[in-house]
Nucleic acid binder design. Sequence first.
DNA 1: AATTGTACCTGTCAGC
DNA 2: TGCTGACAGGTACAAT
Length: 274
Amino acid sequence: MPELPEVETVRRSLEPKIVGRTIKGLTINLPRIVNSPPGHDFAETLIGKSFEKLERRGKYLLCYLSEDYCLVVHLRMTGRLIHCSPEEPIVRHSHVLIELDDGQQLRYIDVRQFGTLTLRKTEELDKLSGLKDLGPEPLGEDFTLAEFQKAIASKKRNIKALLLDQRFIAGLGNIYVDEALARAALHPDRLASDLASEEVDSLYQSIRQVLEEGISARGTSFRDYVDGEGNKGDFQNRLWVYGRAGQPCPRCKEPIQREKKAGRGTHFCPCCQR
DNA sequence: AATTGTACCTGTCAGC
DNA sequence: TGCTGACAGGTACAAT
């Protein structure tokens, strides 16, 4: 499900609902989902802590808590973090229920059970594999065209695989990579180091543009994704290539093609992506 | 260093 | 109406 725009939308939708709230109780129905600090009990440590700030890094949601703890949430493919009333029916795959001091609940729901809730002291966050290895934030100030040009020039990899690599750039997933390449008119098989300067420039702009548009549309609800209030996004209606195999390219009207590349279903226009 | 395959899970959909 | 296999917004790991 969730790539950068979806996690950012979850963050924005949850922040006003849970910042300032204290955790009163916890139910863990599927222990595999949670990961405690060494020597701590997840529920015991979490109860009594309050939410101070929500941030996002790549596809990770960082819930900063009192006493310098942080609850790190990764939704992987089908995770949902939903704020709701305890009266709402408990749907299938509700793995963790967090009770808040205003009587509301935060529920972690995940059909495929790949997601994780990791609790750590804030000063230990830089030890978490995955999180500590993330590349630059594509919408951040330090992600400049000059840096992108420099980073890409030495990479002997297919551009699709490179953009999916969270160590190279944080937050892009299969949908937004396909969309960025489509808008930059670049074929997913291109070797990164072979791209001309103008092509890298175009790709840089396209990456930022699709992510910003994705956030503005409150994410892509292609299948399961909903925000922290259970609402779907709109970006699925503005996709150029993802999930549009056989349908006309918005630029040249040729049918969009789908092939397996970098181990993922890959959508592109064989006519204008070169 | 880069690529490929496998694994983790459940649900859905196409084809027979 | 079943059944089977392919596939799904991600990542980690091993082998080549």
